[in-house]
């Protein structure tokens, strides 16, 4: 194994073959532990590939075009209502959390006095630490019971938006804070106001990172059943309005996974929902990788 950094070789050129005694023991130990640590990757890579394999193996044989276009009927049919519901929920949640997160990030990174910024950052991290199911209860009491709406897509979207906000807020804040100070000094020296600097200089530079944060928050939101089960409810027919309950892929898995084998087709539906969620998350991952690579290449000169 080569050294990760281009510094000296192991123990600065001391040779494993010619050294003896204590030095040799230390060099051998260094090698051995380098390989032993790699074993940890098995524990991580095995679940990843096993999960991808089994979910595909259980979903693909029964996956048809109808899965994407039909309603769920009894123990069979398709997942069309849940797919639409997922996109509606994520759409509402992304709109809310991006609006709040990005503007709040603008303020925290550029305008906020130091103590305010400190408190705001701590609070943002705290919100990210609130368990998703606790947010689900919050949404249930406030948006389902107190407002009298009942289970609605809107309540689910808002709750999911609250869940996603701190991630977008943090990345926006960090991305803007990390813009090279020379850019700011140059912009202000040319007489631009801070708002102009933010929108025309800092924001374009920070966009790849902010997008990464948004996509990551979307991927997180897609997989969470806890905030939406008791706010958006569940429905096996397509959503009719924002004020009606809606199914979603994450909740569908939860609804269908635990039935006796006589209802085997329920389990098939659950695996199809799992497969579709993974596909959507992977697409998001690849999209963010490509997008940020492209922007990064365009902006490379700035960071030197």
């Amino acid at each position: 194994m080569a050294l990760a950094s281009g510094v000296a070789g192991p123990a600065n050129g001391a040779d494993l073959l010619t050294s003896t005694g204590r030095l040799r023991r230390r060099l051998v130990f260094d090698r051995v532990i380098g390989w032993a640590l790699l074993a940890a990757f098995l524990v991580v890579l095995f679940p990843l590939f096993d999960m991808l394999y089994w979910v595909s193996a259980k979903a693909l044989p029964t996956l048809t075009w109808g899965t994407l276009t039909q309603n769920q009927v009894g123990t069979g049919g398709g997942l069309y209502p849940m797919i639409v519901g997922t996109f509606v929920l994520i759409g509402i949640a992304t709109a809310i959390s991006t609006a709040i997160g990005v503007v709040a990030g603008f303020y925290t990174s550029e305008y906020a006095p130091a103590p305010v910024a400190r408190v705001a950052r701590i609070a943002g991290n705290l919100l990210a630490g609130v368990p998703a199911i606790v947010l689900g209860y919050f949404g249930y009491f406030l948006l389902v019971i107190y407002t009298g709406w009942g289970f609605t897509a809107l309540a689910g979207g808002i709750t999911l938006g609250i869940f996603m906000t701190p991630y977008i807020y943090r990345t926006t804040d960090v991305a803007l804070t990390n813009v090279p100070p020379a850019q700011r000094e140059a912009a202000l020296a040319m007489g631009s106001r801070r708002g102009q600097y933010l929108v025309r200089v800092a924001f374009p530079i920070a966009i790849p990172t902010i997008l990464t944060g948004i996509f990551f928050a979307m991927a997180l939101g897609l997989g969470e059943a806890a905030p939406i089960l008791y706010t958006a409810g569940f429905s096996s027919t397509p959503i009719t309005s924002l004020m009606s309950p809606t199914g979603s892929l994450a909740v569908a898995i939860w609804q269908f996974y635990d039935f006796p084998s006589t209802y085997g087709s329920f389990l098939a539906l659950a695996f199809q929902a799992a497969f579709l969620s993974i596909v959507i998350v992977l697409v998001l991952n690849v999209a963010v990788q490509l997008l940020s690579d492209r922007y990064r290449r365009r902006l490379r000169g700035l960071y030197q």
């Binding site: 990843l48 799992a274 993974i278 998350v281």
Partner: peptide, 17 residues
């Protein structure tokens, strides 16, 4: 990538496989 996999998927994989 492991971080991106939805938590319900972990659940159903654990439950079935």
């Amino acid at each position: 990538l492991l971080a991106g996999i939805p938590s319900v998927v972990y659940g159903i994989w654990g439950f079935v496989v």
